[in-house]
Design a protein around this nucleic acid. Structure first.
Lengths: 244, 244
DNA sequence: GATAGGATAGAACGGCGTTCGATAGAGTGC
DNA sequence: GCACTCTATCGAACGCCGTTCTATCCTATC
């Protein structure tokens, strides 16, 4: 019995991890307080072990960040895979883009991952492929398809990074509502010289009440309408097609 | 004379800075080796003084980064201000967007700044205003203009961040050309299962020879064509206009 | 039982941002 | 000429960070 007690006492300061546990806790830290909150000390504390142990699973903090990000992207990919398809490839592109946006906008660290590793990691490449397959159903050249998918991902990730910014101070703590915060920023805009900033004054009321998701959707529709136009142009010009 | 020598000796280990010198050297460090190369120790060494002195000009590293970024954006803004205008507001939007892209794509740290401070800093707000003024010449609602300008900035900054990534290893040192690097990535794509990745195989040849600036321009044109379409629709529907 | 290797941890190192207290020099009032 | 103030600078230290080194425990295998 004394040996058992001694063993139990030893176990108390000895933790057992696993790759999945490491990544899950890393994602939890990232979600809680952003990229800079992911430290080996904080992660080790969550796992109940020492910092050095984490190095058995990853070689560096950069690799930890990459693996944790890819881990999170996998769930976004699963969502996208489960989306239904319609007979309109443009609509399907929109659906996929919205799903990608939704999966990234609340996780700024994830957006940075997409921008960090362009099409190197398997999950992000799979998302790229999913978008691309919809363009195969449109009458476009290979180059136009390449450009279209790159444009969509650039727009989605860029906008998600922009809109995903956490408000500077106290909106998170609930002491200030999002509307109040927007209203304050709008007031600063209204204080600008109207002759020098006519556009800012023109849209400040829209800005004050805007919804991020609507803003994203509106820009996405501009892009997709442009793409639809391009596909129709290809459709109506038989000279671009192989001779019959 | 002995007093003069003593004074000169004292001056030798006493540096005099200025806000402009601090920001200039900070930008030089950022350009040379990216955001993480901007350390107070490295900056102090460049300025020939102590680290603590820098805190007289900025309160923190974050503020240093913000001020250095705004300092750099000012030159982009100057470029944009000097651009000529035509009778086609869409063309002018394109010109401004390209200038913004060019000013940001070679400076990943600048793109991060745009994503960090959405329309808080004066220079980026001025660029926003410049884009917006072109939309005032189009037949759109205030909301449509707000969405259009947000979409353009999101696309430009997002794409610039993406394409501005420095190649992982040795392209910078010149040991590997950009084409060879692209070719290697393309070969990895070609090794994927064609049934699972039909789109990647479809566009891999375009990817292997693509030019970043062309890719950006193509996506921008999709966005602007969508916007032109929207403006024309507003033009052709008098019911949307005030009754005569 | 002995042995090998998978898995864990303590302690330390150097680098980082930041703070503190001291102080040199330039300007000001008398 | 002198005391005083304010601007600008600096060395030294603190605490946190990623990372490494080394020692150890635990488990499976023979």
């Amino acid at each position: 019995m004394s040996e058992q007690r001694a063993g139990a006492r030893r176990d108390r300061h000895r933790a057992t991890h696993s790759m999945e546990a490491v990544l899950t806790e890393a994602v939890a830290l990232l979600d809680a307080a952003g990229e800079q909150a992911l430290t080996f000390r904080a992660l080790a504390a969550r796992l109940g072990g020492g910092q050095a142990s984490i190095y058995w699973y990853v070689a560096s903090r950069d690799e930890l960040l990459d693996r944790a990000s890819d881990f999170a992207v996998e769930s976004v990919l699963a969502t996208i895979r489960a989306l239904p398809t319609t007979d309109d490839p443009i609509d399907d592109l929109r659906t996929i883009a919205v799903a990608l946006f939704d999966g990234v906008v609340d996780r700024p660290w994830l957006a940075a991952y997409f921008l960090r590793n362009t099409s190197v990691q398997p999950s992000s490449l799979a998302i790229y492929e999913h978008l691309g397959q919809q363009t195969l159903r449109l009458d476009l050249t290979a180059r136009q398809r390449f450009h279209a998918v790159s444009a969509i991902t650039g727009y989605v990730i860029g906008t998600a990074t922009d809109l995903g910014q956490e408000p500077p101070d106290a909106v998170v703590r609930g002491s200030v509502t999002r509307d109040a915060f927007l209203g304050q920023a709008a007031d600063e805009w209204r204080a600008l010289d109207p002759d020098e900033y006519p556009f800012v004054h023109h849209i400040v009321d829209e800005f004050a009440v805007h919804v991020d998701a609507d803003q994203f959707r509106a820009g996405l529709d501009l892009l997709l309408n442009g793409l639809r136009l391009q596909a129709r142009a290809g459709d109506e010009r038989p000279s671009r097609r192989p001779r019959r």
